[in-house]
Amino acid sequence: MSSSETTTRSRILQAALRLIESGAKTITMSAIADEAGLSRQALYLAFSDKSDLFIALLRFADGRRGIVQEQARIRAAESGIAALLAIIDLQARLSPAYKPLADAFDVLRRQDPAAQNAWQDRQNDRLEGCRAVAARIAAEGKLRLGLDTSTAADLIWTTTSSTTWDDLVVKRGWTAAEYQKRLAELLLSLLVT
C-alpha cells in the first residue's frame, strides 16, 4: 500500500469517526466523502463498500485506543486467570473513552446493516480472545468442574461487554475500581475451581 493510499484511508476513517461521534443518525458514503474532502470515487477506491469501511473504522478506533498492545498484554499474562483479570482491567480502564463511539454505533447499527456487520466483526474478535483465555484456564486445570470452555468464554464475553460496563458504571454508578473488583470476584467464582 502506498503512502498516499494510507493517507487517503486515514482521512476517510477520521472523517467517518467525526461523523459518527457527532451523533449523526445515518452515515452515507457521500457524507463520509464530503467530510473527508474526497470524491465518492476516491472513497470507493479505498474501501469496497460501507461494511468494509466500518470494519476498518472500528479497528482504527481500537488501534488508537491501544487495543493491539492490550491484547498482547493479555496473551502474555502469566496464567489464564491473570489473562482473565487483564480483560477485566482493560474494560475498566478503556471503556470510559470508548463509550461515545460504542453509543453511536449502538444507534447506527440498529438501522444500518453495514454498521451491524462491523460491530459484529468487533464482537467476534473479542469473543475469540475470551475463548483463548477460557481454553488457557482449562488447559491449566483451573476451569470449574462441569463447565466447558465454550460456556466459560461466553460468560467472560458477556460479563465484560461494553453494555455490562455501561449498565454498572454509568447507570448504576459503580466506580472503575468497584467494577474491576466485583467482576473479578464474580468471574473467578463462576469459572475457577
Rank of each mutant, 00 (worst) to 15 (best):
R64Y: 02
I74M: 11
M1K: 07
R131L: 14
Q41R: 15
F105A: 01
D167V: 13
A132M: 06
L13M: 10
A31P: 11
T193N: 12
L155E: 09
Y179M: 09
I12T: 05
M1Q: 10
S79G: 09
T151Q: 15
L190P: 06
A56S: 15
L101M: 11
F60W: 12
L168F: 10
D52G: 06
W119M: 04
M29I: 09
A102M: 08
D52Y: 05
L94H: 11
T158R: 13
S22M: 10
V192K: 01
L17G: 06
Q41C: 14
A76K: 07
E21Y: 07
F105T: 00
I27A: 08
A77R: 03
A33P: 11
I156T: 06
A61C: 02
R110K: 11
V68K: 05
R9A: 13
L17F: 04
I27L: 12
L191C: 07
I81V: 15
R172K: 12
I32M: 07
W119N: 04
I67W: 00
T151P: 14
R40H: 12
R65G: 06
T8F: 08
A138D: 15
T193Y: 04
L143Q: 06
D49S: 09
M29A: 15
E178W: 04
G63A: 08
T8R: 15
D49V: 03
R18T: 15
I88Y: 06
A83F: 02
K25G: 14
R73L: 00
W119D: 00
P100A: 06
L191W: 03
A56N: 14
V107N: 05
G146Q: 10
L53P: 03
S189N: 11
S3E: 13
K181M: 08
E70K: 02
V133D: 01
L19P: 10
V133E: 03
L143S: 01
A33S: 14
S22Y: 04
G63Q: 04
S189G: 12
A15K: 04
R65P: 04
V192C: 09
S51M: 02
G66A: 03
Q123R: 11
I74R: 03
T160Q: 07
S4Y: 12
R18I: 09
V192D: 05
G141F: 06
I20T: 08
G63C: 09
A114D: 07
I137W: 04
W174K: 05
